[in-house]
């Protein structure tokens, strides 16, 4: 299958539902190393994204991601807003005006998302940020597509890689964001941004797997 408008809307809607369902966990992760607002901020930003689809239905999968990104930038309130928002807008722009995106085009869009977030946040892998989940996920997605995987299988590979990346943030010391003020005391916790990234990618795997079945 390809990523069409309906599936793109389903992805962001599922991500909004999954983040809302896990809001307490994200908030408690953030309370350990940050200001404890990540769950509420992501819930608010993604809810604004899904509300925007109802208000003005996007015509292409690219437009879905651009609209979601705009809502996240406008309504999230924390650093995750500009980061996810910029990433989704870059991904949407990479998809262009196409009505359907093949898995290879989705791989390009995810790479654009990663590049956009890296450029804005100036974080590298190992800094204990969302990049630690997103970078291996994007690589796993591309590798799966190169090996002939369909969209659902590639998205599952990406979500699995994000989960491994998330687990690998536990022993890291934060070098970006509020957690970096804690120095060595940031060690021993999952990074909340990597946790929400994993939820967003798992949501993509869920909707692309269900649609194919």
């Amino acid at each position: 299958m390809n990523l069409d408008t309906r599936t793109a809307v389903a992805w962001i809607t599922r991500a909004a539902d999954d983040v809302r369902a896990d809001e307490a966990r994200l908030t408690s992760l953030d309370a350990a190393v940050g200001d404890g607002d990540h769950g509420a901020n992501m819930t608010r930003g993604l809810a604004a994204a899904t509300a925007s689809f109802a208000e003005k239905p996007p015509a292409t999968p690219g437009a879905v991601l651009v609209a979601a990104g705009r809502s996240l930038v406008a309504k999230t309130g924390g650093a995750s807003g500009p980061l996810y928002g910029t990433g989704l807008r870059k991904a949407g722009k990479a998809l262009g005006e196409a009505e359907q995106a093949e898995p290879a085009a989705v791989a390009e869009a995810l790479q654009a998302m990663l590049d956009g977030i890296r450029e804005l946040g100036e974080a590298a892998e190992g800094d204990k940020t969302m990049i630690d989940a997103l970078a291996p996920a994007v690589a796993a997605f591309r590798d799966a597509v190169d090996d002939g995987a369909d969209l659902g299988a590639a998205a599952r590979a990406a979500a699995d890689a994000a989960e491994e990346g998330l687990a690998a943030t536990v022993p890291l010391q934060a070098r970006k964001g509020r957690a970096s003020y804690l120095g060595a005391r940031s060690v021993g916790h999952e990074d909340p941004g990597a946790a929400s990234t994993t939820l967003v990618l798992r949501a993509l795997a869920e909707v692309t797997t269900e649609d194919a079945a």
Partner: peptide, 12 residues
């Protein structure tokens, strides 16, 4: 933090 990232986003 988010003040910087949001201002950078607006500048873009």
């Amino acid at each position: 933090g988010s003040s910087v990232l949001t201002a950078k986003t607006l500048l873009t």
